[in-house]
Design a protein around this nucleic acid. Structure first.
Lengths: 162, 162
DNA sequence: CTTGACTCTGTAGTCACTCAAGGGTTTCTA
DNA sequence: TAGAAACCCTTGAGTGACTACAGAGTCAAG
């Protein structure tokens, strides 16, 4: 099959597949006479695996490690466990951070129950105070905002028609 | 004060401050005879404000809006409220997503309680199955992994010494 | 006068894509 | 069979919020 069909099957877009190939996650496929990439079932399986891992928020580096283990069945899978445990740990940590964040944001929000002028806005006052949170630890877990792509999906969220 | 002192005060690094200036978040400061940036108290306050907002995971665009309201005290702060409410909503949404993620990861982890060879690793099997999650919605909230910078802080997390 | 700490500009790298330009190929339809 | 539409190709640039580095200049202390 050609790249478009593969993309439809996996629910990715075509550029992503080519990107994975460049990045070494997908093997270089055969080419047709007209220089089109031709994929078979193994590619489909591998792309599904990658997309599933991405759906679980793993990095491409983590996925690379998992793919390596898939390719080397003789190796012990304790490392797979470790990778997953660590990933779960980071997700849990990020959730705690987000909870703290939510608390702080709600605190802040309560400082301004109704519309007043910005000169007396408790929120802006609150934000002007010293930095409270300890900042990012080594959690490797992202903040509250999407990548460029996600933000494009979420566009319109800026609100003020400035 | 010079940029280094400002950076120490705010707990940022120097490049970040210059980046904010380029990006229009910090006003262009005066220069010394030797072409060094010279900052005063207003810059300190503004940088603190920015860093506090960043600590609350706002984007620079969101912060730009808030700074605008700070500079225009005559405007109504209902927009500030709206911005904050929306941000809180996105954080809450991302937390839900992470909870679902955690559940899936733990499910997966249970498939492999002990070290076996990768050929019979339930985790890899599980990952090979069809994509379950609906994928990212328009949450504008990031996944589980840090930016390059954070990942560098978190380095060593890869685990396998391959 | 030298050493070292600090600063400057400019550029490139991070992650995981996404988009666009400018072309070639294939397939469908008239 | 012509031409349009849909698909594919490569290359390069853009996203956010920084970080890192090269190569130079400035400044204070010894």
């Amino acid at each position: 099959m050609k790249i478009g069909e593969l993309a439809r099957l996996a629910g990715t877009n075509v550029e992503t597949i080519r990107y994975y190939e460049r990045d070494g996650l997908l093997p270089v496929p055969a080419r047709s006479e007209g220089n089109y990439r031709i994929y078979g079932e193994p590619h489909v399986q591998r792309l599904f695996f990658i997309r599933r891992c991405r759906g679980l928020d793993m990095t491409l580096d983590e996925i690379r490690v998992l793919l390596h283990f898939k390719e080397s069945p003789q190796e012990n899978c304790a490392d797979v466990n470790r990778l997953l445990d660590r990933h779960i740990g980071h997700v849990a940590q990020r959730m705690q951070e987000l909870q703290e964040l939510e608390r702080q944001l709600k605190d802040l929000r309560e400082r301004c129950g109704e519309a007043r002028d910005a000169a007396h806005c408790g929120i802006l006052d609150g934000l002007s105070q010293a930095i409270v949170s300890g900042g990012k630890t080594a959690s490797h877990v992202l903040g509250s905002h999407g990548h460029a792509a996600n933000r494009r999906l979420a566009k319109g969220y800026q609100g003020n028609q400035g």
